[in-house]
Write a protein that binds this DNA or RNA. Structure first.
Length: 643
RNA sequence: GCCGAUGUAGCUCAGUUGGCCAGAGCACUUGAUUUGUAAUCAGGGGGUCGGGGGUUCGAAUCCCUCCAUCGGCUCCA
């Protein structure tokens, strides 16, 4: 019998019923057959060696497709598990999926230690097994059979019990068998390079109450060269790590004496911070925001009113007490309750809405010690926070304006690789949220509509909402590909209720405002960390801590050098002088390494002509300009960046 | 918080079959040099070897414990 196979280009080919994916690949080209890893048949990804007996639309996947990589890595997880069992026969296997960069297998070593010493022997065994040319053979088994095979393994038993009888499959490869849905690559011998990259603890089923397993991460490739390139990329990325660059450029530091997770901002880092703050203040002023300032602590009662105490009391620094009266105060974990009280400080009219209160508010949160990470996860940080109090009918419009601010900021900073994520509540677990279904419905729709009307591409995540409302988060990746949340915009009907906020409408009746929480950077600390990693510390001219280094040729020109610096400073340009008795080559090298954008060399001929020799970092000598020309030149460049 | 790893000068790192006063480069400092577009030369200071405890005639090196950091997990208002 003949069947019709539809290829991705919509062309149709005829095959004998029972043809395999590999057969189809071979009929298209031998080259394709050699690199084919998996096939999609009517939407289901499966092995190339499975037969196809009816008309189908297919796609063949290779290393160049995510599906191909995933299949290869999934198969690699099996081979790694086989290698692990070779050395640790008693180890209990659990799950071994592919991930973004490679794969892992979670193993219960039953008390035996597995450490970095094991990496090499696993890699060696892995390559040996791969080379032996194992095929992956699929077998359907009954639930009873499956349970019998895994009688001694509570993890697999638990997995099997949650599966439908009749849908359970095992995969045999070499001497190894694993409960697995598949699919797998045709033959393990295509894998030529593999590395065990890390081990980590991981809770069974991601639940802290369960036993901690040993997660072994690995990555595999079809070519040794690809592995080498991958390792090189990781090394390059590490050079951009904000913790390293921040130390090298003297932006911030940590001190054990001060406490972990509490960054100290050094002068240059502070200058960067202040520049960002000034920039954002100007933008926000243009959008009708008003700056406010509130204290770093607030009475515990404030947070009982807001609900934060109930929800996050355990995750906060514990309240501090006044010595005489025993009043309890909390280090503020949020600015919003304070801002609610500013709203409530006098009667409000509908005419003053939307009221937009902004504050660069420093907050303190208890983060688990193992979770602290450079500037991206700290215990004390400053939010570029603001709260918009508005009428319910203004929510969508205000939300759109905030999106405009975020997108403008990202544009100026040349941030392109972000993901806008709509975080909605978990429909299966609504008890962890405050508020009525109706309010959630309205708020969620406002966000969905606002992003749609702005044409902002978004992804939607259920269960990621705040306890008081849904939000739109802007996610970015750091140098090593880890995801972090930066900006956030959140709609909140709860806090105005809890603080009984009211305004008088044009009907002379009292009404409840809606709040929008928003922070385009999220936290300055995290934002700067990501900025450092995206730029490698090579900040845009307008933002960099010191824009110009004036370097003197000899001590005769020091007075002139200082004069140049003063003129630059008077024109709002951040400049310093290097008047060490070093050769000009040394000064230039230090400035290049220190990432100062402009170097101005001043010597005899410059002094005579009231000029400077301009050198742009990474580009080299740009020739001579008068001081006035240079001021105009650099100001034009800065203005262009802020457009 | 949990699992694993790491911790030698301000920074990057040498230094294990346990054994001379613990080393280098950069940085810092002093002196000489006054320099023309990516590293001038010579001297000097600086380390409770993360903290504490133990084993030993003897510990940076072996053991225990605490702390910090790193990679994950969990969490993230």
């Amino acid at each position: 019998m003949q069947i019709n196979i539809t290829l991705p280009d919509n062309s149709i080919r005829n095959y004998e019923s029972g043809v395999t994916g590999l057969g189809i690949a071979q009929s298209i080209s031998e080259g394709l057959a050699r690199v084919a890893l998996a096939i999609e048949v009517n939407g289901n990804i499966q092995e190339l060696n499975r037969t196809i007996t009816e008309d189908a639309a297919i796609r063949i996947f290779t290393w160049n497709d995510d599906e191909g990589k995933k299949t290869l890595w999934h198969s690699s997880a099996h081979i790694m598990a086989e290698a692990i069992l070779f050395f640790y026969a008693d180890a209990l296997l659990t799950i071994g999926p592919p991930v973004e960069n490679g794969f892992y297998y979670d193993v219960d070593f039953q008390g035996k230690a597995f450490g970095s010493d094991d990496f090499e022997k696993i890699e060696k065994k892995f390559l040996e097994l791969a080379k032996s040319g194992e095929t992956f053979v699929r077998k359907e088994v009954s639930k009873a059979e499956a349970l019998a095979v895994y009688a001694g393994n509570p993890y697999k038993t638990e997995l099997i019990e949650n599966l439908e009888d009749g849908s359970i499959t095992f995969y045999y490869s070499g001497n190894f068998v694993d409960l697995c849905r598949g699919p797998h690559i045709p033959n393990s011998n295509v894998i030529k390079a593999m590395k065990v990259t890390a081990t980590a603890g991981a809770y069974w089923r991601a639940n802290q109450a369960n036993k901690m397993l040993t997660r072994i991460y690995g990555i595999s490739f079809l070519k040794q060269k690809d592995l080498d390139e991958y390792m090189m990329r990781i090394e390059e990325a590490k050079k951009r790590d904000h913790r390293r660059v921040g130390q090298e450029l003297e932006l911030f530091a940590f001190s054990e004496k001060v406490g972990k997770g509490l960054p100290l901002w050094l002068p240059k880092g502070t200058r960067l911070r202040e520049t960002l703050i000034d920039f954002l203040k100007k933008v926000q002023e243009a959008y009708g925001y008003q700056q406010v300032v509130t204290p770093h602590i607030g009475s515990k009662q404030l947070y009982e009113t807001s609900g934060h105490w109930e929800k996050y009391g355990k995750d906060s620094f514990q309240p501090i007490r006044t010595p005489e009266e025993g009043e309890e105060f909390m280090l503020k974990p949020m600015n919003c309750p304070h801002h609610c009280e500013i709203f409530a400080s006098r009667p409000r009219s509908y005419k003053e809405l939307p009221l937009r209160l902004a504050e660069f508010g420093t907050v303190y949160r208890y983060e688990q010690s193992g979770e602290l990470h450079g500037l991206t996860r700290v215990r004390g940080f400053t939010q570029d926070d603001a709260h918009i109090f508005c009428r319910p009918d203004q929510v969508k419009e205000e939300f759109k304006k905030v999106i405009d601010i975020v997108l403008y900021i990202f544009k100026v900073l040349d941030f392109k690789e972000y993901v806008a994520q709509i975080s909605l509540r978990d429909p299966d677990n609504q008890t962890k949220y405050f508020g009525t279904d109706e309010q959630w419905e309205i708020a969620q729709n406002a966000i969905i509509e606002a992003t749609a009307e702005k044409g902002l591409p978004t992804v939607t995540e259920l269960g990621e909402a705040a306890f008081y409302g849904p939000k739109l988060d802007f996610m970015v990746r750091d140098a090593l590909g880890r995801k972090w949340q930066l900006g956030t915009i959140q709609v909140d009907y709860q806090l105005p209720n809890r603080f009984e906020l009211e305004y008088v409408g044009n009907d002379n009746q009292k009404h409840r405002p809606v709040m929008i929480h928003r922070a385009p950077f999220g936290s300055l600390e995290r934002f700067i960390a990501v900025l450092i990693e995206h730029t490698g510390g090579d900040f845009p001219l307008w933002l960099t801590p010191e824009q110009v280094v004036v370097m003197t040729i000899g001590e005769k020109f020091e007075a002139y050098g200082h004069e140049v610096v003063n003129i630059l400073k008077n024109n709002g340009i951040r400049a310093i002088i290097d008047e060490r008795s070093e050769k000009i080559g040394k000064k230039i090298r230090d400035a290049e390494v220190g990432k100062y954008p402009y170097m101005l060399v001043v010597g005899e001929k410059e002094m005579e002509n009231r000029a400077v020799s301009v050198r742009r970092r990474k580009e080299g000598d740009l020739g001579t300009k008068t001081i006035a020309e240079f001021v105009e030149f650099i100001q034009a460049e800065i203005a262009e960046q802020l457009k």
